[in-house]
Design a binder for these strands. Structure first.
Length: 479
RNA sequence: UCCUCCUUAGCUCAGUCGGUUAGAGCACCUGACUGUUAAUCAGGGGGUCCCUGGUUCGAGCCCAGGAGGGGGAGCCA
């Protein structure tokens, strides 16, 4: 007989028919006469209840049906006699496919702390919380491709291994096949990368933007969606050494079109999750509500998770220039009461506390900040007519901080080369990148969006390590 | 990398002023119970008090160093 998944069985189409269920035991309860086994197979947050009359099953079989065990159940799907579920399986046979010794199986039928579950990342996917998070992550990844596909964007696979080291996006992981204990040396004692696999020093990519710009000059609109690596010694709830970034790049776009696209994109993905993961989001919402009960009144959320997501989807993002943002901060009571730890001054980058104030206290919604001073942004961002600012944009989300960083690109060859020199980059090293300006260059724009941060926003998970299956952070690559 | 907090049973945590045999809830095991909903009730087993060293008649508690983890900051997505 063909196995049917829990999600489909709970639809009830097969009621009063014999079905085959396979999955993992969440809990077993009951008495001398009847046992109730809650089975989950990951297809939905809901469990299917298996009813096992004691007279039909040996004590030995039921003894091995413990939390965590994999079982196969044959029986009739019937309308449930009990409350709490519409359907259940009246079992005629139960086979234990894989035992889980209750003395040593780490997961119990009770809530565990996220910190504890992080230490058993290989088992935490079997919990309600992580089941919900990763079903939502899956839906959102699909929505990313769906959105861009519907808009006629071409999905580009930009390289994971790269030789370019002038992007300035962050510290990089070296990639080498050299014997690190005894590397070949040049005459003056430096490591001789000419003998390395690629004949030069290479690293894991910190961004696909340069290659993305190249592709945009051929296909007009492209996007990348792949792993990205930063070797920063960052220990925060919003940084990973390996994360997934979405980087669209569009020919003939200016900064406003860029911001419009980013806003539309974020709303699309959130809406898609709301439409397709309602039960998972509701579960996480309850989890957050429980968590909130233990917090002091002033730290509690004003909106439930669903309300927050619907609010974001149904309202325009706030748009301010960097200069306006500085004005808002300097005119705030917070500033006048000297509650900011860091200086607020035109020309200085916004600190986390400033961003949080703008997003969480002042506007209370996502904010797009544009036109930053050129000295605090990357060389490739387009210089504005004022000569002081560049056509950059950051999107700041409540509770997460910076979720998008992007800009209109500097397409004017002479200005770009000048900016490279000013920040100490040798234009000759980026000859192929400059060719995009040399041959048929055009105004264009793009942005990078941290996928995990967007998943954090939708799931309400506070720590980025809990929205990627196997987090890579400093001193942690166990799984 | 910096600041700060934490580490006691499988899990979550309490442990008073440094004092005799370190506790609770849940989990687990045994038993009871005819339909349970993280079932309930009764009983039972379970401890390198993170590690190393020190102070003291005596350290889970005080001191020093180390390890691991959480939160915040910087870097950024």
């Amino acid at each position: 007989m063909q196995r049917t998944k829990v999600k489909d069985l709970l639809q009830g189409a097969a009621v009063d028919q014999e079905v085959l269920l396979k999955g993992w035991v969440r809990t077993k309860r009951g008495n001398k006469f009847v046992n109730f086994i809650a089975v989950n197979d990951g297809s939905t947050i809901n469990n299917l209840q298996v009813v096992a009359d004691a007279e039909k099953f040996s004590e030995e079989t039921l003894k091995d049906v413990t939390t965590g065990a994999a079982i196969a159940v044959t029986g009739i799907l019937v309308a449930s006699q009990g409350k709490g579920q519409a359907f259940e399986i009246q079992a005629s046979s139960i086979e234990v496919l894989g035992k889980a010794d209750p003395e040593t199986y780490p997961l119990q039928k009770k809530a565990h702390s996220l910190e504890f579950l992080r230490e058993i990342a290989h088992l935490r996917l079997r919990t309600n919380t992580f089941g919900a998070v990763f079903r939502i992550r899956n839906t959102m990844a699909f929505a990313v491709h769906k959105f861009f596909n519907e808009k006629g964007f071409v999905y580009m696979h930009t390289p994971i291994i790269t030789a370019s080291d002038a992007e300035g996006a962050g510290e990089m992981f070296q990639v080498t096949t050299l014997d690190i204990a005894n590397p070949p040396r040049t005459e003056n004692g430096h490591i001789n990368f000419e003998e390395d696999f690629f004949g030069r020093a290479t690293n894991l990519t910190v961004s696909g933007q340069m290659e993305g710009e190249v592709a945009a000059m051929a296909f007009s609109d492209i996007y990348t969606f792949g792993p990205t690596f930063r070797a920063e010694n960052s220990n925060t709830t919003r940084h990973l050494a390996e994360f997934w970034m979405i980087e669209p790049e569009m020919a003939f776009y200016d900064l406003k079109m860029n911001a419009d696209l980013a806003e539309e994109f974020i709303k699309y993905v959130i809406r898609y999750a709301l439409e397709n993961n309602r039960e998972d989001i509701e579960f996480l919402e309850q989890r957050l509500a429980e968590e909130d009960k233990n917090k002091p009144q002033n730290e509690r959320q004003e909106m439930t998770l669903t309300e927050k997501l619907e609010f974001v989807v149904n309202n325009d993002f706030e748009r301010v220039t960097y200069t306006e943002a500085i004005d808002i901060l300097m005119n705030s009571n917070h500033y006048k009461k000297k509650k900011f730890q860091y200086e607020v001054k035109w020309g200085v980058d916004l600190q986390s506390e400033h961003e949080r104030y703008l997003v969480e206290k002042h506007f209370k919604k996502p904010v797009i900040v544009t036109d930053y001073p050129k000295d605090i942004k990357s060389f490739y961002m387009r210089l504005n007519d004022d000569g002081k600012t560049v056509a950059a944009m950051d999107i700041l989300a409540p509770g997460i901080g910076e979720i998008v960083g992007g800009s209109q690109r500097e397409e004017r060859m002479d200005i770009l080369v000048e900016r490279m020199k000013a920040v100490g980059i040798n234009p000759d090293d980026m000859w192929w990148f400059l060719d995009t300006r040399r041959f048929g260059g055009c105004p264009h724009a793009g942005f990078g969006l941290g996928f995990e941060r967007m998943v954090q926003f939708v799931t309400g998970m506070g720590n980025i390590r809990d929205v990627i299956p196997f987090p890579r952070t400093p001193q942690n690559a166990e799984f």
